[in-house]
Design a protein around this nucleic acid. Structure first.
Length: 668
DNA sequence: GATAGCTCAGCCAC
DNA sequence: CGTGGCTGAGCTAT
């Protein structure tokens, strides 16, 4: 929203720059502007790759919008259209009584080859089978060769399935044997169904995979064809037309800290060969010139390009890893070196091919900023929330000499006027410390239709008409997993000056799909003034409307059994009355999020009870994995047509600069 | 074509 | 909390 304002309409002197955010102690901090901008590209919002067939506008509030009367949140939470996982159970022909264990590698009935832990009459098995019931929607040609849209489609569908499986796993008894590893299982289902792309191995660039693309599981690398080994670090393929029989060259490597690699210089990587590791039943040994090591040696002589994927510890979740595609390199030299164990290891020096902006360099500088935030180039303020949030938000300008956005008061949540009486029978749960996903006695679980809305890391599982978090009458603790949006954001944001769209929002952390980002804070207002003068128009740029028309999109996991018209997969929101939130005078980081026609963020209504009142909050989640320093954007929607006669028709139409291939050309 | 072997995962327990 | 152990997946090679 800041973009429309600062990008096009503002006169530079129309606000008092001395009142930069009213943060007194830091106003004197003299910003340092670098001579040139060589940061990563802004707003590289990729094309909208989700579910090509699923797009159609929808009208959330049936007819013409009434005057925004006092919203009364009185609908029965138990009327939620969502259904529990169990309702996804599918009838599997002959699956009863066939569950005699013959081998651990026995295949599941039907076309699926999902392996299983066998237990008699296992319900989980049937649930799992139901989840494999979806249309691959990927042709044989697309399985071999991909493009950006396919890559994004495959990744989003994988993660939707993984979240669903994780949710099921969370709901099981603690020591249940099933679904221990949702990522592997969902990967397996995707492979079995043929939902993958770039399955044909190749040397060099993979169509649809861009430098900086971020992954959270090795399975994802295989699914989009960037590195097709589930564990091994070196991937290779036969060299066609080679004189040497069975010659293989390396096509990609993953460097993620398992060996003694040297990765100080972002353009050079000294990679350690594979093998020779000590294990439970094996001593450390000399590495052999076979397999991956041999392939890298051949690549040195052939001079072919080798893709490099860098792995890091995920800062937001130390126990897991995050992978970044860093571009194509060439093997420049190789040698043998004694490792720490005293055994011989192969070393390969890889050097980045020219003409590529590396992603690794960006990641390294962010690590530096995290240790010392003042080392950030162009830093204006280290925390524009002045401590209002538990995670600081940097204010940065590397583009020009503007010292900050115009004045506003930072508030961390939405404010409803006193006249709004939102009544809801408060049904608190009885959970003692934290609500448990599988607990069907927890009324908060019931309110959410039986499905716990979140999995680990506060990842949202599915979009829903409404999500109910625990409230103040619930005795569970503040760290209950069903209190995600109300406990403040955890992402390390920065508000930054874009090149042509005013101020924008992005993150230092890599963000997984489904991550809670922030809510839309501001003041709930009764109506928008449709005026002609600049001030009113500018005010309107800061209003969030639930009564706009938003492009529908599919984010949840699909099954064939839950077809069209089935309410249990509805991703359309359901808010009792139109809601208008103005962040002009008061707001949080959300007011800086710009519009994109191919956004990487979506919003979701959430409610919870506080002091016997419940209000709707508009809460933002990541639509897909988002690399660090990529601008965060959502779809501003378009005003309903029924509004046309109320003003002169253009509703403050603005030229859209989102740059996506699907750009509508303008936004509101 | 089945299957054992290989391996810079990813968990959870300790 | 780091570390170890353990079960794994797809791909490769036999």
């Amino acid at each position: 929203m800041e973009g429309g304002f600062a990008g096009n309409t503002v006169q530079p002197n129309s606000f008092d720059k001395s009142k930069v955010l009213d943060v007194k102690p830091l106003r004197s901090l003299h910003p340092v502007f670098p001579g040139e901008t060589n940061g990563p590209p802004f707003a590289s919002a990729p094309p909208n790759g989700s579910f090509p067939s699923g797009f159609s506008p929808f009208f959330p509030f049936g007819g013409p919008q009434g005057s925004p009367s006092t919203p009364v949140l009185n609908h029965n939470p138990f009327n939620s259209t969502a259904v529990p996982i169990r309702s996804f159970r599918a009838e599997l022909p002959g699956s009863n009584g066939e569950n005699v264990r013959s081998s651990n590698k026995r295949k599941l009935a039907g076309s699926s080859s999902v392996k299983k832990k066998v237990k008699r009459g296992n319900e989980s098995e049937l649930e799992l089978a139901a989840l494999t019931n979806f249309k691959p929607g990927i042709s044989a040609a697309e399985k071999d060769d991909g493009n950006r849209e396919l890559v994004e489609n495959v990744l989003m569908r994988f993660d939707a399935l993984r979240r669903k499986l994780s949710q099921m796993e969370d709901a099981k008894e603690p020591h249940s044997e099933v679904f221990k590893r949702a990522n592997l299982k969902s990967g397996n289902i995707m492979f079995t169904k043929g939902v993958r792309t770039n399955g044909k191995k190749r040397i060099g660039v993979v169509p649809g995979v861009e430098i900086g693309d971020t992954f959270f599981f090795r399975m994802e690398l295989i699914l989009v064809g960037v590195h097709s080994q589930s564990m091994a670090g070196i991937d290779f393929m036969p060299m066609k037309g080679s004189d040497i029989v069975g010659e293989r060259v390396a096509v990609s490597i993953v460097s993620s800290g398992g060996y003694e690699d040297d990765a100080e210089d972002p353009d050079v990587l000294v990679y350690t060969g594979q093998g020779g590791n000590a294990s439970a039943d094996k001593e450390a040994s000399d590495q052999k010139l076979v397999r991956g090591n041999l392939a890298l040696e051949r690549s040195l002589h052939r001079g072919n390009e080798v893709r490099v994927i860098r792995g890091f510890k995920d800062v937001t979740n130390q126990s897991s890893k995050v992978y970044v595609y860093d571009g194509v390199f060439k093997v420049q030299e190789s040698w043998i070196e004694k490792g720490k164990s005293g055994c011989n290891t192969f070393k390969y020096k890889l050097v980045r091919m020219p003409g590529q902006t590396g992603a690794f360099a960006t990641w390294k500088s962010i690590q530096k900023w995290r240790a010392d935030p003042s080392s950030r180039d162009g830093l204006i303020l280290p925390d524009l929330t002045s401590g209002a949030e538990s995670t600081p938000v940097s204010l940065v300008n590397e583009v020009d000499d503007e010292k900050g956005p115009s004045y506003f008061t930072y508030i961390s949540t939405v404010k409803y006027p006193k006249s709004f009486k939102l009544v809801q029978a408060s049904v608190g749960c009885n959970c003692s410390d934290a609500c448990k996903p599988g607990n069907s006695n927890c009324s908060c679980n019931q309110t959410n239709g039986g499905d716990f809305p979140y999995i680990a890391n506060s990842i949202l599982v599915c979009r829903k008409p409404m999500i109910y978090e625990c409230g103040s009458s619930c005795p569970c603790f503040r760290n209950c997993k069903n209190r995600v949006s109300q406990t403040g954001f955890k992402v390390r944001f920065e508000v930054f000056k874009t090149i042509d769209r005013g101020w924008g929002l992005r993150s230092w952390d890599p963000i997984r799909a489904g991550t809670f980002l922030c809510e839309y804070a501001g003041e709930v207002i009764e109506k928008v003034k449709e005026g002609q003068d600049g001030e009113e128009r500018e005010n309107n740029n800061y209003v969030f409307h639930t009564n706009r028309i938003y492009e529908s999109f599919k984010w949840n996991h699909e099954t064939e059994s839950a077809g069209e018209g089935s309410s249990n997969t509805s991703e359309d929101f359901d808010i009792p009355s139109p809601l208008l939130i103005s962040s002009k005078n008061s707001g949080n980081v959300a007011r800086f999020m710009n519009h994109s026609c191919s956004p990487n963020v979506f919003w979701q209504p959430i409610t919870y009870e506080q002091n016997n009142e419940a209000f709707v909050h508009i809460v933002f989640f990541a639509k897909k994995h988002i690399p660090p320093l990529t601008e965060l954007t959502y779809d501003y929607g378009t005003p309903p047509h029924t509004d046309e006669k109320e003003s002169n028709g253009d509703h403050g139409k603005k030229k859209c600069l989102c740059g996506s291939p699907n750009c509508r050309g303008y936004y509101y």
